[in-house]
Design a protein around this nucleic acid. Structure first.
Lengths: 332, 332
DNA sequence: CTGAAAGCGCTTACAG
DNA sequence: CTGAAAGCGCTTACAG
């Protein structure tokens, strides 16, 4: 890294062009020869060019802010930003393609060193404009499989689902139910698949009545668990697709006068700080949300540096934290 | 509001001085006559002057990010910021006067339209420098009584403590314990005082063994509740100083095979979204955290406008949300 | 204490 | 497609 911030005229001198031309490349104007543009773009990237005023800012664009899950992502981004002396601005954007596009337009207008996206994927057209303005983008926990050319950071959801289910199998459970998240999302599908894989590997049946498709919130978990408890043969364990659902399952249990883990074992997914607040404290899959956000932040800065050598999709490892909500199934 | 952003030369023209002089006022240089400085400062404020590039940014400086409580504050600030087309940048700062000062210095160096402070009060010297640079500051939930000249937004903590305790009295409870927060903080003291006032008003004794001083976290609530349950005459209800503690109390109850509210009623304080995740869902005092952050944000913008007419300390009302963790005391 | 002047980083309309 | 030139918003060293 050069100690001094490069200015437009530094870049112009090195490229052997005028300041005007460099400015055009920076603003994604069309009237620059491809070869010239290419050369200038590379120099800008190599010198980590930033406009002299403003910027030094990365935008975290996130759907809903109001959950421990979102909070962990914000925390991770802010911490990584502080280390790099970069300000993190938070944009909360409802789940609408239109509002997302507007938000990204505003970000482009005001300038940004990068976008961390925890949202649906913007249209290719919008992504193109971002790229033209040299604003890098990395998605976190993408809701769908990210296509080629889209960088993303997720976690090993499949392994997480597998680990939670295997843990219950090893405790002796045979009737293990699951509450899935919305199967339209990539992560929910992978977790569900991990559940199924563990059952299959242990030679246990995958029983349709023990599978409840639900939303990602506590009331969803509660309703699903109530339905499971009403089964002729209720499960002795429930694998929830996230911690919020697991709290809901615990509520359903308490409502029926049942206890975890004596009557039914419960596992969650996420391990945000509140997982330890549950009664009993939740056994759950650790999704390293803070590390995911920090990793995505660092990928932003690698933009264009390593060329094609850098990975496009990163998945951080999940681990299982065993607390008190799981135990052997009731005798008999 | 003028439709066009005023520039330094607009201000200079109106003030009948040169651009240089206005620039000096903006940078808190000393070589400007007091009268001139006064006149220019007023014009800058009246026109809502902002530097042409950069800024359009408000900094939220907060101690710890990783809690539902902090998350709600972030959410409120970001939403208010979005309405005003202002970016909110998050600065997470450990509880150290030194680090806080450094953070504020960095904020001054990079420029900011204002600071929302959820932290201890910075030294008067630092506050003076902020003021000289015309960066307004509003504290949220100040840990100590804010002195004159410091604007703050809190909530009616005393009334909240009173309401929770009165609710339990009305349900018929007579042995009501409390877990307080750290009594060095203003809000914990006020909540505790509300508890005491409700007891006194009902002619009930304030019994020292029923009062547990503790930290604001779940394990603190759990430990305090365990001690209360070991009393020769345990309480039939516990007033916790926040939701995290209340979750801990619920854990202690479950650990002893007791249930809320059949055996012991529990109230919390905050009502962040997770309060509804508890088993049973928490009866708790609503602290309007999002509204508090939004109010503080708006106070930032009033800086210097209304003159002395604007309030310095604002307290937003608390309300009680009755869910399922409270009920009549056990018979007998 | 004040401001004219030089200058910085950047953008843009326009001539070629 | 490229760049010289004008200009914008701002800062700063310095003369008075």
């Amino acid at each position: 890294m050069p100690p001094e911030q490069a200015t437009l005229s530094d870049i112009a001198a090195r490229a052997g062009v005028s300041v005007s031309t460099v400015s055009k490349v920076l603003h994604a104007r069309t009237d620059v020869a491809p070869a010239t543009r290419e050369r200038i773009a590379r120099l800008l990237a190599d010198h980590g060019y930033r406009p002299s005023r403003g910027s030094g800012v990365v935008d975290l664009v996130i759907g809903s802010l109001n959950s421990p899950w979102a909070d962990a992502l914000v925390t991770g981004a802010v911490e990584a930003g502080a280390e790099a002396d970069c300000r993190i601005v938070i944009d909360s954007v409802p789940d609408s393609a239109d509002v997302l596009r507007h938000t990204l337009e505003r970000i482009m207008a005001r300038g940004s060193d990068g976008v961390l996206l925890v949202h649906q994927m913007p249209a290719p057209e919008t992504r193109g404009r971002l790229a033209a303005k040299r604003i890098p983008l990395v998605t976190i926990d993408p809701p769908a499989e990210p296509g080629a050319g889209v960088r993303s950071v997720g976690c090993t959801n499949w392994q997480g689902g597998l680990a939670a289910t295997r843990h219950l199998i090893e405790l002796g459970h045979r009737r293990i139910a699951t509450v899935t998240g919305p199967l339209t999302t990539w992560s929910a599908r992978a977790r569900f698949d991990g559940y199924r894989a563990a059952l299959l590997a242990a030679g246990l049946p995958v029983a349709e009545p023990l599978i409840r498709r639900a939303g990602f919130f506590a009331p969803d978990g509660r309703a699903a668990a109530l339905a499971l408890l009403d089964l002729p043969e209720p499960p002795t364990a429930v694998v929830a697709a996230n911690d919020a659902q697991a709290f809901g399952v615990l509520q359903a249990l308490a409502g029926r006068g049942l206890r975890a883990p004596a009557d039914v074992s419960v596992t969650g997914f996420d391990d945000t700080p509140v997982a330890a607040w549950a009664a009993p404290p939740l056994t759950t899959v650790v999704q390293p949300l803070e590390a995911m956000a920090a990793t995505a932040f660092r990928m932003l800065r690698l933009h264009g540096e390593g060329g094609a050598a850098q990975p496009e999709q990163v998945e951080l490892a999940t681990t299982l934290t065993v607390r008190e909500s799981t135990g052997p199934p009731p005798a008999g």
